[in-house]
């Protein structure tokens, strides 16, 4: 039976990962060689390089550190000039003021629903479409695939006016439908999943099909488990991207009930105009935290996504 043969095959070895793992080993050996050959050999050089890099890292981190420490300062220390980087004592006052000022909890909840739904939806539409592109034979496959790729060339900035007109005409302003449905498919996730599926050898699926597995079962039991890395990369990429989107939620939501974190935070800025920077920075930290954590956990996925395409991010 179908399930039995699958289990047998899946037991043998993880399908696609085996190849890339071997590659990874080779990579680290070559990296080791590279260090040996590339570094000029002199310790002095390396020290200089590290010193410059450290200075660069400080410049990049400097504004962020100001933001973080300001959020923890007592209110009296925020408005003095010249400002001090470090607070004299750490306090959560600014966070309290921020939460009292705007329903940040609600914004966060809305963003979780919004980016969660989009991510889930994109994974479903992308795996299905990718399966068709990678495995099925039909006329017009290349044409449709090019159309999918072409969709990535059309940024929201260019189509926001008619898109807004269309979505509001559906009665979707201030709804989660309006926030999520237009983004339930994206060329990038389809492209990513197609690449993953193409890397999986066909023989296992063929065995499964002979054993009577339908296409959906093959997709679910063979292809998706074998491309876990790509599914993960697509998921984390999409989730962070939509957590960070500003333009569309700003357009389509005008009440707190469905407003997401980015336009919510922008409201702090507009209303503040520089009055309570502590409160603004506290809110910014709350909004930034999930993406920073996701980035630190899935750094490799992000790097891969960026180098593959240069889009998003």
């Amino acid at each position: 039976m179908c399930a039995g043969s699958l289990a047998k095959h899946l037991d043998k070895k993880p399908l696609q990962e085996s190849g890339s793992r071997g590659e990874a080993n080779e990579r680290s050996v070559s990296n080791w060689l590279r260090r040996l050959y590339r570094s000029s050999g002199s310790r002095k050089h390396t020290v200089v390089l590290h010193a410059i890099l450290l200075a660069g890292a400080c410049i990049i981190a400097y504004p962020l550190l100001w933001g973080v420490f300001t959020a923890f300062k007592p209110i009296g220390e925020i408005v003095v000039f010249p400002p001090e980087l470090l607070p004299s004592r750490f306090t959560l006052d600014s966070f309290r003021r921020a939460f009292a000022f705007q329903p940040i909890g609600l914004f966060v909840r809305n963003s979780v629903i919004q980016s969660g739904a989009i991510t889930l939806g994109q994974l479903v539409t992308a795996t299905c479409a990718a399966y068709a592109f990678a495995r099925l034979e039909f006329r017009g496959r290349n044409l449709l695939f090019y159309i999918t790729l072409a969709s990535m060339m059309i940024p929201i900035q260019v189509i926001m006016v008619p898109l807004y007109g269309f979505v509001t005409s559906l009665g979707w302003s201030n709804t989660f439908m309006g926030l999520t449905v237009p983004f339930l498919a994206h060329g990038f996730s389809i492209f990513l999943m197609r690449q993953a599926f193409l890397n999986i050898p066909r023989d296992i699926e063929e065995a499964a099909v002979i054993d009577g597995c339908g296409r959906i079962r093959v997709l679910w039991h063979v292809l998706i488990p074998s491309s876990r890395a790509s599914v993960g990369a697509a998921a984390i990429f999409t989730a962070v991207y939509h957590w960070n989107t500003y333009i569309w939620p700003l357009l389509i939501t005008s009440t707190s009930a469905t407003r997401t974190v980015q336009p919510g935070l922008a409201m702090f800025i507009e209303i503040e105009a520089g009055t309570d920077m502590g409160r603004l920075m506290a809110a910014a930290i709350v909004v930034a935290l999930p993406t920073v954590v996701a980035f630190l956990m899935g750094q490799r996925s992000f790097v891969r996504g960026v180098t593959m395409s240069g889009i998003k991010g």
């Binding site: 660069g56 981190a61 960070n244 922008a266 920077m277 930034a288 993406t291």
Partner: peptide
């Protein structure tokens, strides 16, 4: 990781941070 970090943080958040850093008075 440090250099790539700002890319992962939303533009609105970074704008908030820079609004403070570039604030003319404080």
């Amino acid at each position: 990781t440090v250099f790539f970090l700002p890319t992962m943080i939303s533009l609105v958040i970074l704008a908030a941070v820079w609004l403070y850093v570039l604030q003319p008075q404080i």
